[in-house]
Design a protein around this nucleic acid. Structure first.
Lengths: 206, 206
DNA sequence: ATGCGCCTCAGCCATTTGGTTGATCTTCGT
DNA sequence: ACGAAGATCAACCAAATGGCTGAGGCGCAT
């Protein structure tokens, strides 16, 4: 049984690399390549690959997580294996929640990728050991969800805006901004704007 | 005249991709591969490649800029062409200042890389058009150099530490921290810690 | 229709932060 | 030996920030 794979990565060089790496494996066959999430969706709908190997960062257009969600809604749904450079906690969690079968970092050796593809096709969850523990940690302490408005404030906060500026930008009073901030701080478990920015970035919240 | 190239990238997949891409070009020949900066230096010293194609992010060990500096100190010095995913201003500037012959983003097409290698070997500076303008902008407004101590403070600042914490961590008084902060703010042209964090991150200062 | 969550706003208070001036000490290069 | 630059600290002041209580309005789901 050979496993069909669709490559999704916005870097031509990386696609070449994966082509080279997977080309040496008899058990997997690349049936298509896409540079964007949109492309990936149309191709997957036609080609019905067993596995979609997908980067998280996809330059322009929808990102890897959105792509994953949409791919999983197809029938039959391909297994989605995320292969990326980054290891931000929120992104890993997000990918898993979106229905990804696994998450591999690009620093791994070719065999691991080939193995991962086959395990993903078989329905297994595939995570490198270091990531697995992080995912479990993430399970234990789920970061509280911020409301849309709070995210708005947080984003501006991260650009270094003062309360007054944030208020002007969002067309509300400073009191409102302060109110949002108190909620944000409480949810993030911090007591200063700088630290809020820090944990927001660490957890990939922004 | 064929151009000899040393690949430096911590991702096996990317190296495979470059191998595939450059393998199709008669004018360039890969003479070696390294996964770390240290490896790159020893290999370059022995192989004397015309061009070193180097990622900026090199996982563990020294980074691409340090590697570039060290490579340029060799005799004969190879041309160093940075090929990376990121385009932070300070990193581009840093690479150029370190003596890199150019800076390409991984999203470019294979031909651009091949062309870039040959131009770099010929002594040209190679930048994608969008990057070139950014470099010029960077020339106009060189960000002032921070002292070592100021960087220490800035790093702690970026983790969200309050003045009191920074003082404790660095074994100085709060007055000293405030003094450093004033200097940092002045040099960065900001007036709040949050914004200092923001520009520091934007410019790749930390 | 009755809550519940979210967004909005107000006032008060303690603390932190940013801005200023000025001082001592060390180090480094010339 | 001299000045320049950096690191350290002090005192003071104005402004911003963080923590608190409380409150009105709006949409949405049960």
């Amino acid at each position: 049984m050979i496993t069909t794979v669709l490559l999704v990565d916005d870097h031509p060089v990386v696609r070449s690399g994966l082509r080279a790496v997977l080309g040496s494996a008899d058990a997997v066959q690349i049936v298509g390549e896409a540079a964007t999430g949109e492309e990936a969706l149309t191709l997957a709908a036609h080609l019905h690959p067993d596995v979609v190997l997908c980067d998280l960062r996809l330059g322009n257009g929808i990102d890897g997580i959105q792509t994953t969600t949409a791919l999983r809604a197809l029938d039959p749904a391909p297994a989605v294996l995320i292969l990326t450079t980054f290891d931000r906690d929120a992104e890993i969690l997000g990918a898993i929640e979106a229905g990804a079968a696994g998450y591999l970092l690009k620093e791994v050796d070719p065999e691991v990728i080939i193995d991962g593809i086959q395990r993903a096709a078989a329905g297994d969850t595939v995570l490198t050991p270091d990531l697995a523990s992080r995912v479990l940690k993430g399970m234990r302490s789920p970061l509280p969800k911020l409301t849309d408005r709070e995210i708005d404030v947080l984003r501006l906060l991260a650009t270094g805006s003062a309360n007054k500026e944030i208020a002007r930008t969002l067309f509300v009073t400073e009191a409102t901004v302060k109110s949002h901030l108190v909620h944000i701080f409480t949810k993030l478990g911090v007591d200063s704007r700088s630290r809020a920015i820090h944990v927001a970035q660490e957890t990939g919240l922004i």
